[in-house]
Simulated scan of single mutants.
Amino acid sequence: MVKAGYDKLGSRYRTYYEQAVPQRYTNWLTAFAQLLSPGTRVLELGCADGIPTARYLSQHVNYLGVDISPVQIEHARVNVPMANFAVADMATLRFPDHSFGGVIALYSIIHLPVAEQPALVNAIYQWLKPEGYFLCILGADKWTGTEADWIEPGTLMYWSHTDAATYTYWFKEAGFTVIDSHFVDEGNGGHTFFLLKK
Rank of each mutant, 00 (worst) to 15 (best):
L138S: 06
S108P: 15
A86G: 08
T166E: 13
L195A: 01
S37M: 07
T15Y: 11
T166I: 09
A174W: 07
G5W: 02
F95K: 02
T26M: 07
L9P: 00
P52A: 00
N84A: 13
A148W: 07
P118L: 03
Y6V: 01
D7S: 03
Y63W: 05
S181I: 12
V87L: 05
K3P: 00
L128V: 06
Y56E: 10
D7L: 02
R12D: 11
H75P: 05
A105R: 09
G102F: 01
G189I: 01
A83H: 11
L156S: 02
I179P: 03
A115E: 14
W127Y: 15
A174R: 09
H98V: 13
G50S: 10
I68F: 06
S58E: 02
G189V: 01
L120P: 14
K142Q: 14
Y133Q: 10
C136Y: 07
G46M: 00
A20G: 08
M90R: 11
M1F: 07
L45Q: 07
D89L: 05
L195S: 02
S99C: 14
G139F: 09
I124L: 02
E186G: 01
S181F: 12
H161G: 10
P113Q: 09
Y17S: 07
Y133E: 10
L138F: 06
S160E: 06
V61A: 06
K129E: 15
T144N: 12
I124M: 04
L120D: 12
L45T: 03
I124C: 04
F100Y: 13
L112K: 11
L128Y: 01
M1Q: 12
V21M: 14
I179R: 09
L45R: 05
M90N: 12
Y169N: 14
A164N: 06
G190E: 00
G102Q: 04
T192V: 00
T155A: 04
